[in-house]
Design a protein around this nucleic acid. Structure first.
Length: 216
DNA sequence: GCGACAG
DNA sequence: ATCTTGTCGC
């Protein structure tokens, strides 16, 4: 798979994203996905962390070592992380109702970021959450829950969401089988006390810790 | 041509 | 992402 092949696949896949939730969507368990790298080598550790949406407590997790050959190219994340993330998901004992990715969904140059790719690949409703915007936005009000549109190429592709009073916003977008209002609500519910949702925090902590342990 | 550029 | 000390705040 070359970068050009990847870009062509994204353009071809973007129309397949379903920007609305399944009928009666009421997710109970959300899984956060993240990867930690060993510098520029291809070695990595992927983690999936299941959190109970009602309590934001960790209820299951899986950590798997891996390797990637695809380089870091902005816009082509999935081709670097997707295989390992899917193995971490498969290693879970729990079947999550929702996935929360470390990276954008449709807030992407070709409207097909990592979260869209993960969503289509698994069929599970997926939300993209990024720490840095891809596009432009005006700062939301300082109160938790405030948000402003994230715009790219003249289109609203997501939201800059303040998850805690006074903290920098995070950037939420549709991955697959969810709408932006539902995604915003879920991310806020998953972020009761920190800037990032507990799903992301747990996954990040797990793969980072496992990576350090594997080095020594 | 130049800058910007998710993790 | 990762490399890194001290420092501010709960």
């Amino acid at each position: 798979m070359t970068p050009d092949d990847a870009i062509a696949e994204q353009v071809r896949s973007a129309p397949l994203v379903v920007p609305r939730p399944p009928a009666g969507f009421a997710p109970r368990v959300a899984a956060g996905l993240d990867v930690a790298y060993v510098g520029e080598t291809g070695a990595l550790v992927a983690a999936a962390a299941c959190v109970d949406i009602a309590t934001a407590e960790l209820v299951d997790s899986a950590v798997v070592p891996g390797h990637t050959d695809f380089p870091y190219v902005p816009g082509l994340f999935a081709y670097r992380e997707l295989p390992s993330l899917l193995r971490a998901l498969a290693a879970l004992a729990t079947a999550p109702d929702l996935l929360v990715c470390d990276g954008h969904g449709v807030a992407h140059p070709r409207r097909f970021g990592l979260a869209c790719h993960v969503g289509l690949e698994t069929g599970i409703p997926t939300i993209g959450v990024g720490k840095k915007p891809l596009g432009h936005y005006d700062p939301p009000a300082t109160a938790r829950g405030s948000w402003t549109p994230l715009v790219d190429g003249g289109e609203v592709v997501g939201r800059a969401l303040r998850t805690q009073d006074g903290v920098k916003p995070i950037f939420v977008s549709v991955g697959h089988r969810v709408d932006i209002d539902t995604a915003t609500d879920l991310v806020l519910r998953l972020s009761p006390e920190h800037r990032q949702p507990e799903t992301t925090r747990a996954a990040d902590r797990l793969c980072r810790r496992a990576l350090k342990a594997s080095l020594s």
